[in-house]
Simulated assay, not measured.
Amino acid sequence: MSHLVSVSELNELISTGAGIRLLDVRWRLDRPEGRPDYLEGHLPGAVYVDLDGELSAKGRPEHGRHPVPPIEALERAARRWGLRDGDVVVAYDDVKSVAAARAWWLLHRAGVDVRVLDGGLGAWVAAGGALETGDVAVAKGDVHLTDSTAGVLDIDEAADFPETGVLLDVRAPERYRGDVEPLDPIAGHIPGAVNLPTLAHVAPDGRLRGADELRETFAAVGVRPGVPTAAYCGSGITAAHTALALEEAGIDAQVFPGSWSEWSNTRGRPVARGILPAGDVVTP
């Protein structure tokens, strides 16, 4: 089953009168507070989700910039969004589904039937979908989330992963090479990681590329069904998007949610620089 839903499929789901919960997960690095944009216009009935405050935990720098929230905190947030057991949840954003994928990854692992609106807000508007303004107040939900560590790598597991599988660094090439690092204290990548930016999986219209095209892109860097695969990024957000793309390609994957922000803030971790996975390794 696909973890994506098209605009037409979403309209069909809404028309059935089933329990559909829409989550507006607008967030981006340059504008992390998406509520002002949400208030100016969102899908009818959508509840705003605060990625920094609800899809992440607070922690020390060595925990990374967006640690995974405890299941109790995520469940409280999900109930605030009005989620009930058995609901179908659809998450969307306005940045090529990168932020929505974070909600998908967390909720999917917790046992929720959750999809991502393919193409996000742009696809909805392009199809003539109506928007409403202002906040949406919903009754508190009663959803029960399942605590699971499946598919999650810690920092030591991420360090060892290239020995037995493919560890994908899904950041921009210049950050992978170590040419620049705008957010974290050290530039470079985890030794052995292969670079494949997550936006390679997005078509010009903002939708995820088709499964065959995704499989071809992944195969070019050695990722195929049956090959252990994991992804990391800057702080665990875009890695969730790559995990979504891998799922659509029929490939199981794990995520290192601490990602480069945790690695670069942990003393003694080696850093590779250059275009090759092994790179020129230094230990800061």
Rank of each mutant, 00 (worst) to 15 (best):
G119M: 04
V112E: 04
G119Q: 01
H108C: 14
W124R: 11
V125K: 12
A103E: 08
W124K: 09
E132K: 13
V125L: 09
R109F: 03
G129T: 05
V116P: 07
D118T: 03
A110N: 08
W124E: 02
A103Y: 05
R102W: 02
W105A: 09
W104F: 14
L106I: 10
G119N: 04
G120W: 00
G120V: 00
L121E: 03
A127Q: 07
A127E: 08
R115F: 12
D118G: 01
V116Y: 12
E132P: 07
R115E: 02
W105L: 05
G120R: 02
A126V: 15
G128T: 07
G119S: 08
A103D: 09
G129S: 01
V125T: 11
L117P: 05
L117G: 01
G119L: 02
G119Y: 01
G128E: 05
L106A: 06
V112S: 11
V116A: 14
A110Y: 06
W104E: 08
R102G: 01
A103S: 12
G122P: 13
R115M: 03
L117K: 06
D118V: 04
V112C: 11
R102L: 02
E132G: 00
A103F: 09
T133L: 12
D113S: 14
V112G: 10
G129H: 02
G129E: 03
L117H: 02
V114W: 05
R115I: 09
R115W: 11
A130Y: 10
V114H: 06
R115A: 10
W124Q: 00
G129Q: 06
R109T: 04
G134A: 02
H108G: 14
V114Q: 08
G134L: 00
V112W: 10
R115K: 15
V114E: 04
R109L: 08
A130P: 00
W105E: 04
L117T: 05
A103L: 13
D113T: 12
